[in-house]
Design a protein around this nucleic acid. Structure first.
Lengths: 345, 345
DNA sequence: GCAGATTATGTTACCGCTAACATCGCATGA
DNA sequence: TCATGCGATGTTAGCGGTAACATAATCTGC
């Protein structure tokens, strides 16, 4: 390759900082038209085996790396997906991002990551910014956006998949689960266990809010007592769970069933409860959410609700890919959740 | 905007699926040349205030979103960075990725994320693939790559920052810390505490290997006993730590100081030790690595080594940005680490 | 053996934007 | 008053690919 590079010094590099070999260089070396090289790379079945072999040899010899920016401009397909998630610090999001990225990677796409945080308005400007890259598809978190962004997405005519949430009227495809039903199921789980007093520590975030609403509504509908309710900052960590339990401890006069908005919150609450001499689960039963490794790795493990984040990412990618390839939107895909009983209930 | 859209139906949309307003549309509406619109967006100080205002009004009215693919092809600056990390499941990597993305976002760049896993060869093909997007810069994890990739990176003439590792001869910029010195420091920390018997649970990953080597070498150099050593799969989780402790438990006859390659491993080891009636720290002292929230959020907290992942990401972004803007490489930037003593030692 | 279909390759004309250079108008100072 | 310089804007020519169409070569079946 050293020899080739020297040649390139004179030709390709003359213009820019890149020692960039172009498709015309490959074509010239292989004795074909540039379009044929393009075909070898993109639609190999439309090229004879002999020609393809010559072209591949030329590509190899020159160390040609196709320029996807140029290809994208010409074909109007960027082969790129933008993913907007609030954070990748939690398994709730980094698991789907992982499988989503892997699935699209296998299909020849790259994923651009944008972190919106939990603040106000961060997502809107990020969406606007990533659309400038003309992604072939968009992954968004949650299902509720401003009218301005809805209009922008409609104008952009880009397939969108929204994950982790539920909505009657998703923007395009939605892959999530029913947070409200999940909260109610946790309440039922506790009720079936004979609990009569309930408490909740829940993050200030729309999805956690829906779970909380489902939980609280079911408890109230059964005429039972919600003895303590506390909204934590998002994203909620172990320390938020500990602080939350400290705050509500005075209210826990009798045996209580506590629902935490994540396993970190639940772990923090359990840790703090034990420190204060509250027996888990005898005096305080706890159920978390997420089935993070912590919930089974700590001793004893604690009860939680499992949602398959990896599956969400995979299905989201598959659905989005289908949309990109012209399939109609399936609308809403809701995944199941499973309550996993462990030592804390 | 509805009216405008109708106009677009006829002109811009005629060709593709995008209702895409182009720079020429904006220019026509504002009564200027396309180049002037480009200047308003990219070099606003070279345009008169009056013209800029007219152009901005036109942009607003048309809902124009610039096409960065076209701009990137023309200017040969993609305003995009590719980040290749093994995983985002661990704070070790998702913290730097977060600050790296934020810092570049503030500078008008987007970050493409590629997950290489811990397997063989995954990174090479990913690097090759992302270079096809002509990123303005590259974030890589670790400092040791194949000659083929080194050559490719050199040919691409793209600034590279390598994080989380240490090397005498980085590819370009390196922002990391001295894992070997860190391991030795943990040994010293234990030795100063009067320990004479040592054990280690370490992930099969080059950086963890360097920490282990530093730890083991120091122990041996002091003529002390390494009673147990166990290599765990990467990435190592709580369960790996638990299993590791189960495996080495028979070897722990006397008071032993254990170094875990991450806080998850340490937490797992502590959890399992307690289950088996081994008192921590009286019979088994444990130090983790990473200062994950778990190390201070569990009760009692456990000792660990803190490395500021957020700072690594931030500095990596700043250095890479400087390189992109023509600054010379500073070579190696090594960050400090801090041993944080908590209840487990 | 030849019309018509099929396959393999080439040619042309952009994709939407910006670097580089050209031009214009106006303030400045002698 | 006019050469000079400078800031503001316009013009030209690509960036490196690929869609769409054109053409040449080969294959059908009767």
């Amino acid at each position: 390759m050293a020899r080739i590079k020297e040649t390139q010094e004179v030709t390709s590099r003359a213009r820019g900082p890149f020692a960039s070999v172009k498709i015309t260089d490959v074509a010239a070396l292989a004795g074909v038209a540039p379009m044929t090289v393009s075909r070898v790379l993109n639609t190999p079945d439309r090229v004879s085996a002999l020609t393809a072999a010559r072209v591949k040899a030329a590509i190899e010899q020159l160390g040609y790396v196709p320029n996807l920016i140029a290809g994208g401009l010409s074909s109007r397909r960027s082969r790129m997906i933008a993913a907007v998630v609030p954070t990748i610090a939690s398994p709730m999001f980094n698991e789907p991002v992982r499988t989503f990225t892997e699935t699209f990677g296998a299909a020849g796409y790259h994923v651009m990551l944008a972190l919106s945080g939990y603040g106000e308005g961060g997502e809107d400007s990020l969406i606007r910014a990533v659309l400038a890259r003309r992604p072939d598809g968009l992954l968004l978190t949650g299902a509720h956006r401003s009218p301005a962004i809805q209009a922008l997405l409609a104008d952009a005519r880009v397939p969108v998949v929204e994950i982790w949430d539920n909505s009657d009227r998703p923007t395009d495809v939605l892959v999530g689960f029913d947070h409200e039903a999940l909260g109610a199921a946790v309440a039922d789980f506790f009720i079936a266990d004979g609990h009569t007093h309930f408490a909740i520590l829940s993050a200030r975030d729309p999805r956690a809010g829906a779970r909380r609403h489902g939980f609280v509504s079911r408890v109230r509908a059964c005429g039972l007592a919600l003895v303590a309710e506390r909204i934590l900052n998002a994203p909620s960590l172990i320390e938020d769970g500990r602080q939350g339990l400290r705050d509500i401890a005075p209210l826990l006069g009798q045996r209580t069933a506590l629902f935490g908005s994540s396993d970190l919150v639940a772990f923090g609450a359990i840790t703090e409860a034990r420190m204060r001499g509250l027996a888990v689960p005898e005096q305080l039963a706890v159920c978390g959410f997420g089935d993070f490794e912590l919930s089974r790795g700590s001793e004893p493990g604690f009860s939680t609700v499992r949602v398959d984040g990896a599956e969400i990412g995979r299905i989201a990618a598959e659905q989005l890919l289908a949309r990109i390839n012209g399939a109609a939107s399936p609308g809403r895909v809701l995944l199941p959740f499973t309550i996993i009983p462990r030592g804390s209930t």
